[in-house]
């Protein structure tokens, strides 16, 4: 469980986050949407303790996030990190295995479980044919999938992905969606997603938070997304239909926009 209690954060002399109160329960996929600069990434970075100085409390499993040791925190939270340096020559498989390092004992090798976990996610995200390719040789769409796999492999109670679909093609997005559903299936994990891809969030998240100027402007299930809300906060006209399989909203953009 993650609790944010009256969290405020000042960035560049203005509120990046302002009086955020929220609770995220185990087994949930939370989608965070909002315009650029609305505080989506800031919120994720505050939860993952990348920003350590803020007002209020961020509790993970009832303990303040700052009280965790670095290694324990990385066992607890798998969050997307920036892309690795493009000139690193390690292979995709080696890279993915490194995600398990918080669980590895110093000077000991990786365990059989670590190797199995990597194999499992390679299969889930269909990365088999790239496993022995060096990271620098991977196309950006595959690198996007690799970054998602890197986080999933940790099997942490909290998974945080910031704009995971940015570089992905439609098939990769579907595979990621399946992987996320599988990830929370046992009810012990939370997934936090921030994205500009409203359709991905609408189809994937159990609960959606809309941020505006660092504050929670609206929250609810996928049905929260409607034409009025998008007009009000994104200043754009859209048409919303319902997905015939799950009844969740699909956002259609008008060319004249």
């Amino acid at each position: 469980m993650i609790e944010l209690k009256d969290v405020s954060l000042i960035v560049s002399d203005r509120f990046g986050l302002k009086n955020i109160d929220a609770t995220f329960n185990d087994g949930e996929i939370i989608g965070i949407i909002g315009r650029s600069g609305s505080g989506k990434s800031l919120m994720l970075k505050t939860i993952s303790s990348q920003y350590r100085v803020f007002q209020g409390d961020v509790l993970i499993q009832h303990r303040p996030v700052q009280s965790y040791m670095t290694k324990d925190l990385h066992r607890l939270i798998a969050s997307s990190i920036g892309l690795p340096r493009p000139d690193t020559e390690i292979t995709l498989q080696e890279f993915l295995l490194l995600s398990r390092i918080p669980f590895k004992r110093f000077l000991n090798p990786f365990t059989e479980y670590d190797l199995q976990t990597v194999e499992e996610e390679i299969k889930t995200l269909e990365l088999q044919e790239y496993r022995n390719n060096s990271l620098e040789s991977l196309p950006s769409s595959i690198l996007g999938k690799a970054m998602a796999a890197f986080c999933l492999i940790r099997k942490s109670p909290v998974l945080i992905l910031d704009n995971p679909t940015a570089e992905m093609d439609i098939k990769s997005i579907t595979l990621l969606q399946k992987a996320l559903f599988k990830h929370v299936m046992d009810g012990n994990r939370i997934v936090l997603l921030a994205s500009n891809d409203l359709n991905f969030i609408a189809q994937t998240a159990d609960r959606i938070l809309l941020l505006d100027e660092g504050q929670i402007a609206a929250s609810g299930t996928a049905d929260l997304i409607d034409a009025d809300l998008i007009r009000q906060y994104f200043h754009i006209e859209v048409f919303i239909s319902k997905n015939i399989y799950n009844g969740k909203p699909n956002v259609h953009f008008f060319p004249e926009n």
Binding site: M69, T70, K71, H74, I81, G82, P84, R85, T88, I90, E94, F95, L97, L98, S99, I101, P102, K104, F106, L107, F110
Partner: peptide, 21 residues
């Protein structure tokens, strides 16, 4: 040989290295 994973993580950059604690 023994520190290979930690060294590889170091090469990925300062964002990744804290994973090793």
């Amino acid at each position: 040989k023994v520190l290979h994973p930690e060294i590889s993580l170091f090469v990925l950059g300062s964002d990744y290295f804290p994973l090793a604690g």
